[in-house]
Design a protein around this nucleic acid. Structure first.
Lengths: 260, 260
DNA sequence: CGTTACCTTGATATCGTTCAAGTACCGTGG
DNA sequence: CCACGGTACTTGAACGATATCAAGGTAACG
């Protein structure tokens, strides 16, 4: 049976119950097609709803008044968008589609519901949120301390890893609907330099780039260049401690009310 | 009555009930003195407990094998440390004290408890977590697209803002136990260049730096240089939508069991 | 078949690094 | 009280990684 990228991602962390899966399926039931360049979130505007990106890529970015732009992260299928709508009034960034795709819109209140009714899912959501922060931390390390060559290598391996667990890689290659200019804005480089760096990676036999896709030709090599350690992605099961907690939650249900 | 930096911070978001405050006080009851350079979290080791930093500064950082280092963020009084221990097995970064201070250790299970019993606090924790992510996103923007001069200016204003809501500024100045070398590792610059940049900010009459503290002499000027917009700090109350949700939670308590 | 968006490459400029030295300040032990 | 060693700060000079400027090339598309 087919599982959505979101489900696949969450099941890296914890095995979901049929009810959990059903709830996720319902969240993603309102999937509408969104074209490239569609804005899911607009900086400085009020948040409205949340989304799961079901298909296609998006980017989360910040614009400066003078036109400079920084891509904070790429949003991949199975990622949430605007989960912050629950607690923030105004968006501090924009999110817009990089390719055609489909996004499933839902009300932030669904998250509260999820937390109240589906402990395992709640844990999984907390996990993705923490993962998101870890990814940003690693990006900070890249921008602050890695050379352009290392940086480009690093993001390619990262994207490959993130896509792989969702079943969106084709062994050593993946679709990447990102222009060099966007990559530049993500890595804090100029377009020109991204171009040269990509060429160098190509010349060194580490990658191949087709129109909108990337093939990694030499994994060990690219990893070495990138200084890539996948620990920060936390593609690992739930810790024993938390797992025990969850047991308590699902076992004693009813007997011991958990909400005040 | 005195409130801890943590309490003050959370009350920027939502007004806490006496029970909420009592729970926080209890969380912070196990406050032990920690000396400068003490490690609260060690990269690549198993997480154990969580902390609230009650007093003093710490830093969250990543080390590369070759000795390079990136400070991901400064941890200020009132900030949580290692909240991720709930969902991650192994730490992807270290946290160590920059000054003497006190940290309050607590078990990650307390967070689960908090979520089950104190909806307002739970919302506030979600808020701080989201704020944390926003801060990292803004740092990414700094590292990627701001010049050294802008970057240093920006982090100074950011720190001032974050400290102010906790009652830890002295109008336009604040204690900052951070060496230039650390600042360099936070901003992706060399020590030498941080030194020159700080000098330039000083020459331009924007700041003054004493031994371990900073005074902002020209707020509008520094803000202008930094391109600082405080929106990403979300020092703003709870959104109406979420507020209404909370009402439901606290009103219907008991009558409608919330946990499964 | 002209327009637009993206990619590519060369030449030159610059911001920030590295290397090298020197200074100031402290805490410690003789 | 002074000598010592360590850490942080400061400044100059040379270098280099990456930016900017400029120009063309290519492919998709109406």
């Amino acid at each position: 049976m087919w599982h959505s990228p979101l489900t696949r991602k969450l099941e890296v962390f914890v095995e979901l119950t049929p009810e959990d899966r059903a709830f996720l399926r319902e969240l993603e039931s309102n999937a509408v097609p969104v074209g490239a360049h569609a804005q899911l979130v607009v900086q400085e505007e009020l948040w409205d709803d949340c989304y799961v990106l079901s298909d296609g890529w998006a980017m989360k970015y910040k614009s400066f008044e003078d036109g400079r732009r920084q891509v904070v992260d790429f949003v991949l299928p199975g990622d949430f968008v605007a989960l912050q709508a629950n607690v923030f009034r105004v968006a501090d960034h924009s999110v817009s589609m990089l390719s055609d795709g489909t996004a499933s819109r839902f009300e932030p209140e669904r998250v509260t519901e999820l937390f109240a009714r589906f402990p395992k899912l709640a844990a999984a959501i907390v996990w993705t949120t923490a993962c998101q922060e870890s990814i940003l931390a690693e990006r900070i390390a890249s921008l602050g301390r890695r050379s352009a060559y290392e940086r480009v290598a690093h993001i390619l391996v990262e994207l490959w890893s993130r896509l792989r667990i969702r079943g969106l890689t084709d062994s050593d290659s993946f679709a990447m609907p990102v222009t060099q200019s966007l990559l530049a804005d993500a890595l804090g480089l100029s377009v020109v330099h991204v171009n040269r760096t990509l060429r160098r990676l190509r010349n060194d036999g580490l990658i191949r780039r087709e129109s909108r896709s990337v093939t990694i030709l030499d994994f060990p090599g690219l990893n070495r260049v990138a200084g890539f350690e996948d620990d920060y992605l936390h593609h690992t099961g739930i810790p024993r401690r938390m797992s025990r907690e969850l047991e308590r939650f699902t076992t004693c249900s009813g007997s011991e009310p958990v909400a005040r």
